[in-house]
C-alpha cells in the first residue's frame, strides 16, 4: 500500500514540475530613512547590518515561475515574524490582492474588513493584531517573475 502511494505521488509530481514551477526567495532588508543632499528624505532598503528594537525591517519575497506553463490562483503567504509588528499599509505587490489575518492564518480579509474581538467587543484589527499577510495573484505566467513586500518594526 505504502509503495503504491509513493509511486503514485512520484508519477503525479514529475510531469507537474515540468509544467509550472513557482519558487520563492525571501530577503530581509533594514529600512532606513536617508536624507538626501537636496534635503528630501527617502526610504532605503539596505543590507541587514545591525538590528535593534525599534528598527524597521523590510521583507521582499521574490517569486518566479520557472516552469513551462502558467501557475494560477497563486497565494503567497507570510506570517508576521515573532517579536515584530506589521507596519500599517506596508504590504505591497503588483497585480495582487492583499488580505490579512489576525488569527494565525485561519481566516483572511482586507484590512478594512478585518475584525478582532477585544474585551468582548468586535473591533477593527490594528496593525499590531495582524499575524499573516496573503498576496493573491490570479496567475504567474511561465517564466514570469516579480516580488511582493512588507515591513515590520522590531519590538
Amino acid at each position: 500500500m505504502q509503495i503504491i502511494k509513493s509511486l503514485l505521488l512520484t508519477t503525479l509530481l514529475l510531469p507537474v514540475l515540468a509544467m509550472a514551477d513557482v519558487s520563492l526567495i525571501n530577503t530581509a532588508y533594514k529600512v532606513v530613512l536617508v536624507e538626501q543632499a537636496n534635503g528630501a528624505v527617502t526610504e532605503e532598503w539596505q543590507d541587514l547590518g545591525r538590528v535593534v528594537p525599534g528598527d524597521t525591517i523590510g521583507y521582499r519575497i521574490s517569486y518566479k515561475n520557472s516552469g513551462t506553463e502558467t501557475a494560477s490562483d497563486v497565494a503567497i503567504n507570510n506570517p508576521i515574524p515573532k517579536n515584530t509588528d506589521y507596519l500599517a499599509n506596508s504590504a505591497k505587490g503588483l497585480n495582487s490582492q492583499i488580505t490579512y489575518s489576525a488569527d494565525m492564518g485561519q481566516t483572511f480579509a482586507r484590512a478594512a474588513e478585518l475584525f478582532v474581538i477585544k474585551d468582548g467587543k468586535q473591533q477593527l484589527a490594528r496593525p499590531t493584531d495582524i499575524t499573516n499577510i496573503r498576496w493573491s495573484l490570479a496567475a504567474i505566467a511561465a517564466g514570469a517573475e516579480g516580488s511582493v513586500e512588507f515591513k515590520v518594526r522590531v519590538q
Binding site: 538590528v51 494560477s72 503567497i76 517579536n83
Partner: peptide, 13 residues
Amino acid sequence: ISNTASASYTLPG
C-alpha cells in the same frame, strides 16, 4: 527573528 514565505498555486489541470 526568522521568516519564511510560502505560496500555493494551481497547476493546469
